[in-house]
Amino acid sequence: MNALAPIDAVPAAQAARSSFYAGMRVLPKARREAMYAIYAFCRAVDDIADDQGRDRAVRTAELQAWRRDIDALYAGGPPGRAALLTGAVVRFQLDRADFHAIIDGMMMDVDADIRWPDAATLDLYCDRVASAVGRLSVRAFGMDAEPGQMLAHHLGRALQLTNILRDIDEDAAIGRVYLPREALAAAGIIPTTPAQVAAAPGIDPAARLVATEARRHFAAAHAILTTKPRGHLIAPRLMDIAYARLLRRMEETGWAPPRRRPRTNKLWLIATVLRLLVFR
């Protein structure tokens, strides 16, 4: 890693599909390009994990190839597909362990479709697929270590739990249920199949238990952001506001079937970014 690799147009084009592109777009150039690269990496490994058209062995091999390329990047060898991360890794001292954690999280989906994990396993999954992304991101945002790590911990989990609550039907359709078994048991649901859980009359109280946990993490993340720690924080503030709003909308309508998947309005996101720029 003796020279910074140029960031080409591909990561930026991929990031443009993100709901939070507006929040990334206002970052200074080097930080913006780092976030585009991190997003592109996450998108690539997530697409591998979710590709139901290929068998598990093929997806495992592709994820392990990414792991080898990440290791080669940090060892100073030919980084292969991980070359897009070179500039971000060098500039912001991104931790290799966080890239490994993200791949480990994707492997959890590939090894076997996750169905009603216990709470500890779900928390580990959230740490790998969301909070690890946050740990990379807060370095690109220029946050100090302690508040950055804590923000990544809480906001990552809050966002991932909200995603789980939003995507119950989509996940069930591909054989997955991320709602923890403790919440299902408390609601009187004995899980047998993903379709049965998604259609269960008791899914609303089960989902509300997960929503309570998500709100706890949102509150902790919001408390950190309220202290105005050092860093370029429009992107995480946007995520905090938008996803907390999404969670409130779902709590208002409930999770009893049939459900309509809520969507985030991109014009509202842009307006929120403008407000954050004015009142930061």
Rank of each mutant, 00 (worst) to 15 (best):
D98V: 01
D98Y: 06
D98N: 11
F99M: 03
H100T: 07
A101W: 08
A101R: 15
I103F: 03
I103C: 05
D104K: 15
D104R: 15
G105R: 13
M106G: 06
M107D: 00
M107A: 01
M107F: 06
M108A: 08
M108R: 15
D109C: 09
D109K: 14
V110F: 07
A112T: 06
D113K: 15
I114F: 07
I114S: 09
W116G: 10
W116M: 10
W116E: 04
D118F: 07
A119P: 07
A120D: 10
T121I: 09
T121M: 11
L122F: 01
L122S: 07
D123I: 03
L124A: 09
L124E: 07
Y125M: 08
C126R: 13
D127A: 10
D127Y: 00
R128W: 02
R128K: 12
V129F: 01
V129I: 05
A130G: 09
A130W: 09
A132W: 05
G134Q: 14
G134M: 14
G134F: 11
L136N: 12
L136V: 00
L136Q: 13
S137C: 12
V138A: 08
V138H: 15
V138N: 11
R139D: 06
R139I: 04
A140L: 14
A140C: 13
A140M: 13
A140S: 14
G142M: 15
G142K: 15
M143L: 13
M143V: 04
E146C: 06
P147H: 12
Q149P: 01
Q149S: 09
Q149E: 10
Q149R: 15
M150Y: 00
L151T: 05
L151H: 03
A152T: 01
H153A: 04
L155D: 01
L155K: 15
G156L: 06
G156Y: 09
R157F: 00
R157D: 01
A158I: 06
L159T: 05
L159P: 04
Q160L: 02
Q160N: 07
L161A: 04
L161T: 00
L161K: 15
T162H: 09
N163F: 03
N163R: 13
I164D: 05
L165A: 05
L165K: 13
D167A: 07
I168K: 14
D169R: 14
D169V: 00
D169H: 07
D169C: 02
D171H: 11
D171G: 08
